[in-house]
Amino acid sequence: MGSVREYFSNIANGLGSTAKGMAITLRHFTSEPIITVQYPKESLPIPPTYRGMHILEQEKCIDCHLCAKACPVDCIEIESVKHGRVLEWKKFSIDYKKCIFCEFCIPPCPVDCIHMTTEFALATDNADGMVEDMLTWTGLRPEDQAKLEGKASPKKPAAPAPAGGGEGDARSRVAAMLAKRKKEEG
């Protein structure tokens, strides 16, 4: 008889504690704020320190390869020809198939030209499409070309770096770059 009572009291206990849990769920259903983020329309707030896709301020870059050296996975490839202080760019690519977003490429830069942005949506259906080209132009810029051909004295640097912190500049460039990417895609 006792075991039968125990059996049914166990069932009653189980149902009771389940009901308590359901009460909590019901309370959350009615009174808690909605936490779901409707992703394509909105996104979680991303802090400005977020380690997303890189951005390169090409006119500042002095081709020192320190970022490539610091990279633990060798995902940065740089290729350029130096004409005195003028640089002829061939390649500056980051392979997002390898990149682990560790941010070790940022602190060694002596001229502070490589940054990380908050861009994260890199999904693609192309196996070779994850190598991003960071360059805004390749080869020489027209004014450098003219100078080199005219054997102008290389007193002035070809592209004077903008004075002061380039933070705002980099951000606006990110915006432009993202707009460009969006345009290409759709």
């Binding site: 983020v37 994260f120 994850m130």
Partner: peptide, 10 residues
């Protein structure tokens, strides 16, 4: 392909 290490849920 979704690159990232790890990719954000978004």
């Amino acid at each position: 392909f979704v690159p990232g290490c790890p990719p954000r849920p978004e």
